[in-house]
Amino acid sequence: SEEEIREAFRVFDKDGNGYISAADLRHVMTNLGEKLTDEEVDEMIREADIDGDGQVNYEDFVQMMTA
C-alpha cells in the first residue's frame, strides 16, 4: 500500500531530508545485517535513482518498490 511504501521510505531516509543517500542506505542495510561494499551501495543507488541526481527521492523509491 502507499502508506507502507511511505513508511519504508521514512526508515531509509535517516536524516528526514526527503532523499535516501548512499549513507542512509548503507546504514539501513548494515542494521539488517547486510555487509555491503561501497561499490555495492553505490550500484543500488544508481539503479534506484531514476532522475539521475545521485540520491533516491520519494518518487524514485515508489517506482523501485512497485516495479
Rank of each mutant, 00 (worst) to 15 (best):
E7I: 05
R6L: 10
G54E: 05
I5M: 10
E7S: 10
E34I: 15
G52N: 09
E2M: 13
E3M: 10
M64A: 07
T66L: 14
Y19T: 07
G33R: 13
E39R: 12
M29V: 06
N57H: 13
V56E: 00
S1N: 07
N31C: 13
A48N: 06
D15F: 09
I45T: 04
V62A: 03
D38K: 14
G54K: 04
S21N: 08
N57R: 15
V28L: 07
G54F: 04
D53W: 10
A8N: 03
Q63M: 10
I5T: 03
Y19G: 01
L32H: 04
V62H: 03
M65T: 02
N17C: 05
D42G: 07
S1D: 06
S21Y: 06
V41A: 04
T66Q: 08
A23G: 08
M65N: 01
E3T: 09
E59F: 08
L32S: 03
E43R: 15
E4K: 14
S1V: 08
M65L: 14
A67E: 08
L36F: 14
E43K: 15
E4Q: 11
Y19H: 04
G33V: 09
V41P: 01
R46W: 05
D15E: 12
Y19K: 13
D13T: 01
M65G: 01
L36E: 02
D24H: 08
I50E: 05
S1K: 12
D15Y: 09
E43W: 15
G54Y: 05
E40Q: 14
A23D: 13
E40H: 07
A67M: 07
N17V: 05
I5K: 02
R26Y: 07
A22L: 15
F61K: 00
G16Q: 07
V11H: 09
T37F: 04
M29F: 08
A22T: 13
D38L: 11
A67I: 08
D51S: 13
A22S: 07
S21M: 08
H27C: 08
N31S: 14
R6F: 05
Y58F: 08
E34M: 15
D13L: 02
T37Q: 04
V28C: 02
E59N: 10
R26G: 03
T37D: 04
D13R: 00
R46H: 06
E4G: 08
G18K: 02
S21A: 09
K35L: 10
N17P: 00
R26V: 10
E7N: 11
G18I: 01
A48M: 12
E59W: 08
M44R: 05
T66F: 14
Y58T: 02
Q55V: 06
A22G: 05
D42C: 08
I5N: 01
G54R: 04
D24R: 03
M65D: 00
D24W: 05
E3W: 14
M64T: 05
F12P: 00
